[in-house]
């Protein structure tokens, strides 16, 4: 329950902080950090324009996409407190629940009959496919290290190992961070601020969405950031009492947002054709973690 509230709170400012960082670094004043939330709220009140080509799939897809993100949010724990839903193998459920949302957002993009959106859908499907192995191997290694198979138990037991587990945590944080960027279509995979439909990935898929539906998609995006942020936080907080962990949670979330903003300010997007290789390379980092775990457990010799 605690994690649910914290993630919700973090979602309010996370994207705003990124935007603010970017604006400061580029010498602009920039919008306030709650501007993304205000945008969403405004969209919720608006009417909508639908394409004549689309069917009801296009209309229910944002609902299912948003629900899948909320479902994933329910599974994420916070330190010693469980997520609202917690069971053995819940991280598998986490990934597959998000996949339902992805499935619908991809077919909704194809539903518009636009070649731009088809292009975006194709890329999204490919990238998410390549990102998933990294996540599963990462969680597999952590499960191997702790001997547990649920998010809550893995994270609760994780810190109990030697100091080397913190080294592993840093690597894991890197992998999770990169997955965050892929899942949220950010640099270096995708540039949310690009103006050309041809070079977009996620943005182009939602070109035809408007009104309440667009609001749902955007708010799902806000939530996704803080969900992955919460996962990263969980790698470090372990058994610390709440009076330390809750400020730590916000500190790490803001730090993550600032880092993302900084990266986006100084880096250009990768070439589209290099993205897939880059994403798949994450799996090898995950494998590195796996071998690290093997060393800790002394299985190598």
């Amino acid at each position: 329950m605690l994690s649910f509230i914290l993630i919700l709170l973090a979602a309010f400012f996370f994207t705003g902080v990124i935007n603010r960082t970017k604006s400061i670094l580029s010498g602009r004043k920039g919008p306030g950090i709650f501007q993304p939330v205000k945008d969403v709220l405004r969209l919720f009140k608006k009417g909508a324009v639908y394409s004549k080509t689309t069917s009801f799939i296009f209309q229910i897809a944002p609902t299912i996409y948003f629900s899948s993100v909320v479902m994933a949010m329910l599974v994420v724990p916070f330190g010693q407190s469980k997520g609202i839903i917690s069971f053995n193998g819940d991280f598998i459920f986490f990934a597959y629940a998000l996949a339902l949302g992805k499935f619908f957002s991809i077919i909704a993009a194809l539903d518009t009959g636009s070649s731009f959106e088809g292009m975006g859908a194709s890329r999204e499907a490919l990238y998410s496919m390549f990102a998933e192995p990294a996540f599963f191997i990462l969680l597999g290694s952590l499960a191997l290290l702790t001997g547990k198979t649920s998010f809550h138990e893995i994270f609760a037991d994780f810190h109990l190992g030697s100091s080397i587990s913190y080294a592993l945590a840093v690597l894991s944080a890197f992998v999770l961070g990169m997955i965050t960027m892929i899942e949220n279509s950010r640099m270096p995979i995708d540039d949310p601020k690009t103006h050309l439909e041809l070079t977009m990935v996620h943005e182009v898929m939602i070109l035809d969405n408007s009104g309440f539906d667009l609001g749902l998609i955007l708010s799902a995006g806000l939530l996704k950031f803080s969900i992955y942020g919460a996962l990263i936080v969980n790698l470090f907080i372990g058994i610390f009492p709440y009076q330390y962990t809750i400020p730590m949670f916000f500190a790490i979330q803001i730090l993550a947002a600032v880092i993302i903003g900084t990266i986006e300010s100084f880096m250009a997007r990768f070439r589209m054709s290099h993205n897939a290789q880059f994403i798949f390379a994450l799996t090898s980092v995950s494998l590195l973690i796996f071998f690290g775990v093997l060393m800790v457990l002394g299985k190598f010799i």
Binding site: V49, T53, T112, S114, S115, L207, D208, G211, F212, L216
Partner: peptide
């Protein structure tokens, strides 16, 4: 639940149909 909320919210504002965006 999300579907019902959406249905309620979409009740009032105007919804129109148009061609797909092709630049």
């Amino acid at each position: 639940v999300v579907y019902l909320i959406r249905k309620r919210a979409m009740h009032k504002p105007t919804v129109s149909m148009d061609a797909t965006w092709e630049c």
